[in-house]
Simulated scan of single mutants.
Amino acid sequence: MGKKYTSLNTKLISFIKKQHLYFVGTAQAEGRVNISPKGQDTLHILNDNQLIWLNLTGSGNESAAHIVADNRMTIMLCSFDKNPLILRMYGTARVYHERDTEFHELMSHFKELPGARQIFKLHIDLVQTSCGFGVPFMDYQSERETLNIWAEAKGEKGIRQYWEDKNQQTIDGFDTHIFE
């Protein structure tokens, strides 16, 4: 059943690298809790206690605002194949925007994707596994290209306009600091 660790080990890192989907959870003291699904090879492990993930442009920008106010973050992955497992990584995060030097340094870990908006670095202080016996079987088919096609069609200027129109505040009205 479930186990707790203070860092990732070789077996867990191997599990993470095989997954096509992960979920990010953030919240401020007030307002809604955000849980966001992520894919497209946007997660990279730096070491046993740090990982980064590339945030692509989307309809909301909750994680960016939440991390500024309260830097707690949880990332969850689960297996949908014959070997059940749920893996949660808890810790504190920082957000890096295109205007930050660190963004460009960290971007080297990812392939270039249109609409790249932020990079989050998670400092892991607890890793928890659980059985995953209740998670259904599902087969991976492929990545959706819809977001990339949409972002490419908008172009850099169109993406920035989208950020201005849709990504400056959360659904609770908190500032995301996207243009600060």
Rank of each mutant, 00 (worst) to 15 (best):
S14K: 14
T101F: 15
K154I: 06
A93Q: 00
R94C: 14
K11P: 14
I86T: 10
E98W: 07
L77I: 02
P114W: 00
A69D: 15
T57R: 01
P84C: 02
M76D: 02
H44R: 06
W163H: 08
I35S: 06
H109T: 02
C131G: 15
S108A: 15
I178N: 00
I16V: 05
L12E: 12
L85V: 04
Y96A: 06
M1I: 11
Q19W: 08
E98M: 13
G115K: 00
K11V: 06
I75N: 00
N61T: 01
H109L: 13
G25K: 00
L56Q: 05
M138S: 13
C131I: 03
M107W: 08
K166N: 10
T92Y: 15
E30I: 07
V68G: 06
K111G: 15
F23G: 04
D100A: 05
G2L: 09
M107F: 10
L87W: 01
L85G: 11
K17T: 04
H123A: 15
D70M: 15
T6E: 15
F137R: 08
R88V: 03
A65K: 04
L51F: 03
E164F: 09
P84E: 00
S79Y: 10
H123Q: 14
V33I: 10
L106A: 12
A27E: 07
L51A: 05
M73P: 02
F174T: 04
A93V: 03
F110G: 02
F137L: 12
K82I: 13
I178L: 11
N83H: 11
F80L: 09
G31T: 00
S14E: 03
D172H: 06
Q118I: 01
T26D: 08
S142Y: 11
Q118S: 13
S36V: 13
L106F: 07
L147S: 15
T74C: 10
I16S: 08
M76H: 00
I75W: 06
